[in-house]
């Protein structure tokens, strides 16, 4: 986490009570864990019917892949529940319906799993609308619709080293782009070191309501060293995807934070849980010299 959250406040201007609650909760949790004031307890949770969970990120020029799983009681065994009787149908902007084949696998480049895969690469342009339908033999049916956002290009990437001795010298990084005027836009900013197969070093989401139509500069704190290879990614999100990401973060924060209000996940699909969206992003590689 480092102090990225502070930069998030600095640049994205989206401090939330939940954010402060997270800070306060973090302090409390840290103190308590060090004081030995925690213990295991038995909790009996009421039954909650399993729901289909969809994860589908369509990309132009790539095979459509969808991961379908099931929600489970929170205290259930950790093994993932993958239903095998789900049919997934993708409807393209021209109305063509593709039934994706059930072929579970793992993308070795990204280390992400999927259960259903298409046979042909997608063509997706900004404004294109895709439909998704998933149903099983138990009568569960999940549907969703996704529109590809326009690409917002990165104008420039800069970095600045501090004045510390060489062995402790670090750089912050800034990314500049032009926000489209007249629309409310949402972004996801990520910086990876060396490869995108690993977790990002920096990540946050933002909206443009305070600087709509202006040039926006995002950044990190001092956390990169000389000669680091960085992958800088700027996603342009639609509102449902942004709200889904926010709600996932809020739901996670609520577990273990006495100050946070529990939050329901705002799925972009109906009839189940999950996300169906078309990715629109630009990624650049830089080496900090």
């Amino acid at each position: 986490m480092r102090i990225t959250w502070i930069w998030r406040i600095l640049v994205t201007m989206t401090p939330t009570p939940g954010g402060w609650a997270a800070v306060a909760g973090g302090v409390v949790a840290g103190l308590l864990s060090s004081c030995g004031l925690q213990k295991d307890i038995d909790v009996e949770l009421p039954a909650y019917p399993a729901q289909l969970v969809i994860e589908a990120y369509l990309e132009n020029g790539r095979l459509p892949r969808v991961a379908v799983s099931e929600s489970v009681p929170y205290l259930a065994e950790p093994q993932a529940q993958v239903p095998t009787d789900v049919t997934v149908v993708l409807t393209r902007p021209n109305g063509t319906r593709d039934t994706l084949r059930y072929a579970p696998g793992v993308n070795m480049n990204t280390d992400k799993a999927y259960t259903h895969s298409g046979r042909a690469r997608l063509t997706a342009r900004p404004g294109d609308v895709f439909q998704l339908e998933a149903y099983d033999t138990r009568g569960r049916r999940v549907t969703g619709s996704a529109t590809m956002p326009a690409l917002v290009p990165i104008d420039s990437i800069r970095w600045q080293f501090n004045n510390e001795p060489v062995e402790r010298r670090q750089a912050y990084l800034t990314v500049k782009f032009q926000d489209p005027a007249g629309t409310t836009d949402y972004y996801r900013f990520q910086v990876h070191k060396r490869s995108i197969a690993h977790d990002s070093e920096v990540e946050y989401t933002l909206e443009d309501r305070l600087n709509n139509g202006q040039a926006i500069t995002l950044g990190t704190s001092y956390e990169f060293k000389a000669n680091d290879t960085l992958f800088v990614t700027l996603y342009h999100l639609d509102r449902p995807y942004y709200q889904f990401l926010q709600s996932v973060q809020d739901a996670r924060n609520a577990n273990g934070n006495p100050f946070a209000q529990p939050s329901a996940v705002r799925s972009t699909v109906t009839g189940g849980v999950g996300i169906f969206t078309v990715l629109s992003y630009q990624r650049q590689r830089v080496i900090l010299k």
Binding site: L45, P46, Y48, A50, Q51, V53, E55, Y57, A67, S69, E70, S71, V72, P73, Y74, A80, N107, N109, T110, D111, K112, A113, Q190, H192, I196, A197, H198, D199, S200, E203, F231, T233, Y235, V248, A251, A254, N255, P262, V273, G274, L279
Partner: peptide
Amino acid sequence: PLARFAFQDTPGS
């Protein structure tokens, strides 16, 4: 929370 689900997120997340 009564239930949970596994969330992979996009590549690199």
